[in-house]
Nucleic acid binder design. Structure first.
Lengths: 102, 102
DNA sequence: AAACTACATGGCAATTTTGCCTAACAAATG
DNA sequence: CATTTGTTAGGCAAAATTGCCATGTAGTTT
């Protein structure tokens, strides 16, 4: 299998390397949320939130489903949780079992 | 166990969200390398490479050991490999087993 | 001690990112 | 049609990132 292109890797990492976007991911990890709900949680302008969502969508991190008047966003990949636990592990906390980390 | 501070998470992700730094990680995953070796591989000024290394060091991704005249850098955490496989998975390629991802 | 090697660091300009605002636009609903 | 919800684009200023240059520094060699 071919290696993932560096650009795609960097895009994924950049999409996560922002406090607000990380917060959005955390919110979505609890379940589906529409844009205005996310906006209330993280603050800031809706256009700003929408741009963050667009960026993460293009990186393939999140998806959405239309529901009536709302657009409900959701985590695209279940492994994102494990991924963020890796981040925590690398950030200094040991929250993974020996098998998975260090 | 306390959650990792958002700042530390973002620092780790930012430290990886750069093509050159990702390349350096890949080089170091093959073994210890000194700065001039890394410089030859990735190109650019040594001061630039040194700053990349410093950034990743502060994020806790890499460490170093002094050896004679050289400073040999190394991956700080073995789980970085698995981490990058997660990134690839999120970037579109499915390289993880069902247990780990999606 | 002087010179040299291997890196680190500060400064600086160019580029990118971010966030707010405004406005135009689309789609679903009443 | 009017309203609500959200996307997208443009403009713009503030902030962060990037990369090279010049200089500083620590350890080594002569």
């Amino acid at each position: 299998m071919a290696l993932t292109e560096p650009k795609a890797r960097v895009a994924v990492l950049k999409a996560l390397a922002h406090p607000t976007r990380l917060e959005i991911i955390q919110i979505l990890s609890q379940g589906t949320r529409c844009v205005s709900e996310i906006e209330k949680s993280v603050g800031g302008d809706m256009s700003t939130v929408s741009k963050h969502l667009s960026l993460m969508r293009k990186a393939g991190l999140i998806g959405f489903k239309k529901g009536g008047l709302h657009i409900n966003y959701e985590i695209a990949c279940g492994c994102l949780d494990g991924f963020l636990r890796f981040v925590d592990s690398l950030a200094g906390n040991r929250v993974l079992d020996e098998q998975l980390c260090c």
